[in-house]
Amino acid sequence: MLKAVLFDLDGTLVDTERLYLQANAAASAQLGQPLPAAAFQRLVGTGDLRQNAWLQQQFGAGLEAFIRLSDELFEQQLGSVSALPGATQLLNHLHQRGIQLGLVTVSPSTYVNNIVTQQPWPQFDVTVTGEVGASKPAPDLYQRALSQLALPTPAVVAVEDTPAGVTAANAAGLRCLQVHDLAPASAKATAVLPDLVAVAAWLRNA
């Protein structure tokens, strides 16, 4: 029986991945190495950008400057972040059913608080952010959430938008639904669904 649902944040509950890509493209242009936003799509869900070989090849010694400028440009857009279609309805529905809600994200806590407080969502029972363990696809963040919930893994489902997130949830022993958006579909997902409305329908039968 379903007792809890653990959600990723960026690209799963809020439409921020496209803002990231726009910030990446703007930063590359300002640094004199213009690349289109589509070129950065390969970075969606990859974790620590400093470890990304493609970025290192593009920017070399200027990688830190690129990351810093991208972050600054992205933060300027945070006031325009919106929930993805169906997110608010899904969270409220699960909360009303008495199902515990968790947030498991590689993003830092200050950023997460900024995003979440803008939304009309019920309170999350568990929030795990990127400061407390290795980035996805490592299972650390999901393992931390599970330890706080104190529930058996069959009673918990994760919802992610990237293969790295799916891998992290699976490595922690969880079933994982993937909302297929910018990142490629994962063969490891329990189901690959088009949006959160479809996720809600799947969870009703879980």
Rank of each mutant, 00 (worst) to 15 (best):
N170A: 15
A206T: 03
Q96W: 08
A168I: 02
V157M: 13
E64F: 01
R175T: 06
T105V: 11
V5Q: 01
K136Q: 14
T110H: 14
R97F: 00
P85R: 05
N24H: 14
L55R: 13
N205Q: 15
T127Q: 13
A187N: 14
W202F: 12
L149H: 07
Q77C: 04
N114C: 11
L146C: 02
L174R: 04
T110W: 09
Q77N: 00
E131R: 12
V14D: 06
L78F: 04
L69G: 11
V128K: 10
L43I: 05
P154R: 06
Q51W: 00
T105C: 10
L21S: 03
E72N: 07
Y142W: 13
Q76L: 07
T127R: 11
Y20T: 03
R97V: 01
S28G: 08
L13V: 10
L196I: 05
A145F: 06
D48N: 15
V104G: 09
V166D: 02
Q96K: 12
P36H: 11
S80E: 15
P194N: 06
G165E: 09
P152Q: 04
P152E: 09
T129F: 09
Q143P: 01
Y20M: 03
A189R: 15
A168N: 03
A87G: 08
L84R: 13
V112Q: 05
A138D: 15
L55Y: 10
G102E: 07
S82G: 08
Q33R: 14
Q22L: 08
W121G: 00
S109W: 10
W202E: 06
R144I: 14
P120F: 02
A83T: 05
A171T: 04
A206I: 01
A187G: 12
A25F: 03
L174V: 04
S109I: 12
F40M: 07
Q118M: 10
N24F: 13
D48Q: 10
D181P: 00
Q178V: 01
Q58P: 05
G32L: 12
T46W: 00
N52W: 03
D181G: 11
P34A: 10
A26T: 12
A53W: 07
D15C: 07
A27D: 10
F40K: 04
Q22H: 03
Q148I: 01
T162L: 07
L49E: 08
Q100K: 13
V14P: 08
A169M: 08
A134F: 08
Q119E: 11
A198P: 04
T162N: 03
P34S: 10
R18I: 09
L177I: 14
G86W: 06
Q118G: 12
A164F: 01
A134N: 14
A39Q: 13
G79W: 01
P163E: 03
L149C: 05
L19A: 12
D161L: 07
L101P: 02
A61M: 02
Q123L: 11
